[in-house]
Design a protein around this nucleic acid. Structure first.
Length: 423
RNA sequence: GUGGGCGUAGCUCAGGUGGUUAGAGCGCCAGGUUGUGGCCCUGGAGGCCGGGGGUUCAAGUCCCCUCGUUCACCCCA
């Protein structure tokens, strides 16, 4: 309550990404971008907030993300909006609005917002890299999309990532299965955990995902969705699993993999980083959503995609000590002890030629400036003292190995450092 | 939303059972070398000990509240 004591801080569950860590973020996005581009995906930016109905209809009111975790608000014009809690629904909304040619292959890198208690690998604002393909139910796309994510993790150097895969069936076969499951759950209601003993009817599939011994016991002896897929879904699933093996992606069937959003059909999958000690070891996940476009008011159109949590991926990289990214270092650091005029013109010239050049400020001593030059990681120091200033020259000193220096004319210096193949 | 741990310099942390001017390492700045970084030495700056209230002659230390943070549950990237 003490207003005068206020010192600003990033809001709960949010974080500043500062250098040098931000260089790693840049590299992560760049790697994903180049891969997605090679796979034929184009970048899509959607607004960070949407009409709240995009999420209510898309993800389902029952989804926790929607019912209790959404940052929703009314704007000054009385519109009910929400910060996006996940990446797929907005892209689908954009697809419906613009109707690009299909299959529409989009990738994105964007923040998502969920009001939940932060903990290891879980934040109120987190960042996802993802792709969506809208307009085809070809199982080869399931394979392509999963293979992309899998290779992304591999390229980062992650070795302890497990791909879990399942099929959620479709509107033709899932309802009948759910009915069977309900009958089974009802018969064994007393054995379910406290929570699901009462709530199993509202979302029976969720019970499959419960880790409590009671629920596991009941569902283990109950009907499994995989055994009740219609012929088309079963064929689709077999095609995906076999195709993944053909392109070198290992997967494990997980009959209990039930994802949180209503829109999933057929293929669902999740990547777990087994190197992470924390409970949040899902670094990516996704699936097919053949009914979502229609749910959001578009023509019946199938789709599939995934999202990858940047923070969690980087945590996994830390756990496996891989994908370390060094901050870029200057090629030349200009030390000018004659007032700074030479430093000003030299770095300007170098930078205009595309050379990473840095300098010291505040007219400090040569010793001090060289110390800053050393810390910057620069390969060379370009020293301008009284002698150099008087003779129009520059002393070049190597900083990354044994001291070694020579004095050149300014012209020679610029030629050497602005041309390719310099030392 | 529920429960536990922790909040002392920019960072990582010391500060038995409450007792005078709150410490270290690293980092930062300066000097040792009036033209030269890294190593070393010396010095310096930098803390209302998260905030508020209470107990006490006395609180960084004990109690309550609050905020923040962290871990777990729930759910998820």
């Amino acid at each position: 309550m003490s207003e005068e004591q206020f010192t600003p801080q990033a809001p709960t569950g949010t974080h500043d990404v500062m250098p040098p860590e931000s260089f790693r973020w840049q590299a992560l996005v760049a790697k994903f971008a180049s891969m997605a581009t090679a796979y034929g995906f184009g970048l899509v930016h959607t607004p960070m907030f949407e009409d709240v109905r995009v999420f209510h209809r898309g993800l389902g009111d029952a989804a926790e993300v929607v019912s209790k975790e959404m940052y929703d608000f009314e704007d000054r014009g009385g519109r009910h909006l929400a910060l996006r809690p996940e990446g797929t629904a907005p892209v689908v909304r954009a697809f419906i609005q613009h109707r690009p040619a299909t299959p529409f292959k989009a990738w994105y890198a964007s923040p998502s917002f969920r009001y939940e208690r932060p903990q290891a690998g879980r934040y109120r604002q987190h960042h996802q890299l993802g792709v969506e393909v809208i307009g085809s139910d070809d199982a080869d796309l399931d394979i392509e999309v999963i293979e992309l994510a899998s290779r992304f993790f591999r390229d980062l150097g992650l070795q302890h990532v497990v791909l879990k895969i399942n099929s959620m069936g479709c509107s033709a076969c899932r309802p009948a299965y759910v009915e069977q499951l309900k009958v089974h759950l009802q018969a064994h209601e007393v054995d379910l955990c406290d929570e699901h003993g009462e709530r199993w009817a509202s979302n029976p599939l969720r019970v499959l995902d419960c880790k409590k011994p009671g629920c596991i016991g009941v569902t283990t002896i109950g009907p499994m969705l995989r055994d009740h897929l219609c012929a088309a879904c079963a064929e689709h699933h077999h095609h995906v699993v076999a195709g993944l093996a053909e392109v070198g992606v290992d997967s494990v069937q997980d009959d209990r993999l039930v994802r949180g959003f209503d829109y999933y059909t057929r293929t669902t999958f999740e990547f777990a980083a087994t190197s992470l000690e924390s409970a949040q070891n899902a670094i990516g996940g996704g699936g097919r959503y053949d009914g979502l476009v229609e749910l959001l008011g578009g023509p019946a159109t199938p789709g599939i995609g995934f999202g990858v949590g940047m923070e969690r991926v980087l945590l996994a990289c830390d756990a496996e000590t891989t994908f370390s990214v060094a901050a870029p270092t200057p090629r030349v650091f200009v030390v000018d002890v004659t007032g700074g005029t030479h430093a000003r013109t030299l770095v300007a010239t170098l930078r205009q030629a595309g050379v990473f050049a840095e300098r010291a400020y505040d007219s400090r001593s040569m010793k001090s400036q060289l110390k800053v030059a050393d810390r910057s990681g620069a390969a060379f120091a370009a020293i301008i003292g009284e002698q150099e200033a008087a003779s129009g020259s520059v002393t070049i000193r190597a900083l990354r190995h044994e001291a070694d220096q020579e004095t050149l004319s300014v012209e020679e210096f610029l030629t050497r450092f602005t041309s390719q193949g310099d030392q």
